[in-house]
Computed example of a mutant assay.
Amino acid sequence: MAKLTLMSRTYCHLCHDMEAVLLPLAAEFGVDVDVIDVDTDPRLEALYDELVPVLLHEGAELCHYYLDVAKVRDYLSKIR
């Protein structure tokens, strides 16, 4: 099963918005979503500080700030 990684912050409204739209899409395609709080790891915070939310698949960035639904839907249909 494919797994997407959402780099997030607990106090970030954009992160919450992206997660809310992403979860139904992930369920539709049968993929898991791992939400990681970048503030729990100094290395992740340094990498993603101003970019969160960032959606990744196997380390490759799919989008950041806002979920590009069409792009992610197309991507998921190809890796399925």
Results as ranks from 00 to 15, higher is better:
Lys3His: 04
His57Met: 01
Asp41Arg: 09
Cys63Val: 07
Pro53Tyr: 01
Leu14His: 11
Ala70Met: 10
Asp34Ser: 11
Glu50His: 13
Lys71Tyr: 15
Lys3Tyr: 03
His64Cys: 11
Pro53Ser: 12
His64Met: 08
Thr5Glu: 07
Leu76Met: 09
Glu28Gly: 09
Val21Leu: 10
Ala60Cys: 11
Leu23His: 12
Leu22Pro: 01
Lys78Ile: 10
Glu61Phe: 03
Pro53Cys: 07
Pro24Ala: 10
Arg73Tyr: 07
Asp68Asn: 09
Lys3Pro: 01
Glu61Trp: 10
Arg43Lys: 14
Glu19Ile: 06
Met7Gly: 02
Cys15Leu: 05
Val31Met: 02
Asp74Ala: 15
His13Asp: 10
Lys71Leu: 15
Arg80Asn: 11
Val72Arg: 01
Ala2Cys: 08
Asp32Ser: 15
Thr40Phe: 04
Arg80Cys: 07
Lys3Phe: 02
Asp41Thr: 10
Leu14Gln: 05
Ala20Asp: 07
Leu4Glu: 00
Leu76Gln: 03
Val54Trp: 00
Leu62Ile: 02
Tyr48Lys: 00
His13Met: 13
Cys12Glu: 03
Glu50Phe: 13
Ile79Thr: 05
Asp49Ala: 14
Gly59Gln: 01
Val69Tyr: 15
Glu28Met: 14
Asp17Gln: 09
Ala2Phe: 00
Val69Gln: 14
Thr10Gly: 13
Val72Gly: 03
Arg80Asp: 08
Asp41Tyr: 06
Tyr66Met: 05
Pro24Tyr: 03
Leu56Lys: 01
Arg80Ser: 04
Thr10Tyr: 06
Tyr11Asp: 15
Leu56Gly: 00
Phe29Val: 02
Ile36Leu: 08
Glu28Lys: 14
Ala60His: 08
Met18Cys: 04
Asp34Val: 14
Asp39Gly: 06
Glu19Thr: 05
Ala70Thr: 15
Arg73Cys: 12
Glu45Leu: 12
Val52Arg: 00
Val35Trp: 02
Cys15Thr: 05
His64Glu: 10
Leu44Glu: 04
Gly59Cys: 02
Leu51Glu: 11
Val69Ala: 13
Tyr75Asp: 04
Met1Ser: 11
Ala26Asn: 14
Ala60Gly: 09
Glu58Pro: 00
Ala27Met: 13
Asp39Leu: 08
Val21Pro: 02
Val52Asp: 02
Glu61Gly: 06
Ala46Glu: 14
Thr40Leu: 13
Tyr65Val: 10
Leu67Ala: 03
Asp41Glu: 04
Asp17Arg: 14
Asp41Ser: 05
Arg73Asp: 01
Glu58Trp: 00
Val21Thr: 08
His13Cys: 14
Leu62Glu: 08
Ile36Phe: 05
Leu25Lys: 07
Leu23Gln: 12
Leu14Phe: 06
Ser77Trp: 12
Tyr48Ala: 05
Gly30Asp: 07
Lys78Met: 12
Val21Ala: 12
Asp32Pro: 08
Leu25Tyr: 06
Pro53Gln: 05
Asp17Trp: 08
Tyr75Phe: 15
Leu55Thr: 00
Glu61Pro: 08
Arg73Asn: 10
Ala70Asp: 15
Leu44Gln: 08
Gly30Ala: 06
Leu22Val: 10
Asp32Lys: 15
Ala26Phe: 05
Tyr11Thr: 15
Thr40Ala: 13
Val54Thr: 07
Lys71His: 15
Tyr75Ala: 10
Arg9Thr: 12
Asp32Arg: 13
Leu4Trp: 02
Ile36Arg: 06
Leu62Trp: 01
Ile79Trp: 02
Val33Ala: 06
Val38Asn: 02
Leu25Asn: 11
Met18Tyr: 03
Phe29Gly: 11
Asp32Val: 09
Asp39Ala: 08
